[in-house]
Amino acid sequence: MTPTSVSYRRIYVWELPVRAFHWINAAAITVLGLTGFIIGHPFSVAYTQEASFQYWFGTVRFIHFLAGYIFLINMLMRIYWGFVGNAYSNWKEFIPTSRSWIGDIKEVLKVDILQTSVHGPVHVGHNRLAGLIYFGTFWMFLFQALTGFALYAPMSRLFVGKLATWIVPILGGDQNVRHLHHTMLWFYVAFAIVHVYLVFYHDYVEGRGTTSSMVGGWKFEREDYLDKH
């Protein structure tokens, strides 16, 4: 194949608040997942001292709750940014609203799953399927925050926990809330694997700098494709 001269344009896609949200969220979920796993699997660490001299399980829970607050506030910040940020971060980017949008989703599915060789312009922000998946993921975040804060309510005097307790009777009691909260851990594990893989994969086959875009904010797009947008 002869080298074709293709020129690329640099586009500032992810503004700083979006990138900050992404990494704070990633860090918070990692911490929440690890500490949550320990809370759900208490194991013996130190048995040499009596209770007066150690508090490690309480500390693990404290870190979980602290990260929980960070997770929640960060998420609220991102929702706000979905209304004031640039076009790529707008909330409308996540909900399919046109027929061609659905067509784009089908296209991505074909390329990703059936591995067909169709190629051409891909939406510059989130690809259309990813956008929809992140929309679903947002509800999962919300669910995790609701169940988490509902469990947290009896041990907290702040109003935040009480805002979530309505979900307890709906889910059938604290035990079920805890079970669902715990089960959701595995959603995050599966999501993280697929998410990281797909970023690498798209970067690999499209060569638009998808991976680094979440660090610097820039994506690259062929100029001839940009015209078609």
């Binding site: 013996s44 660490v45 209770a51 007066s52 508090y55 309480g58 693990v60 009896p154």
Partner: peptide
Amino acid sequence: DTCYRRPYYDAGLFVE
């Protein structure tokens, strides 16, 4: 929250 074994919970001292 009212259990007298609670300090053992926070200290991570569990019956196995």
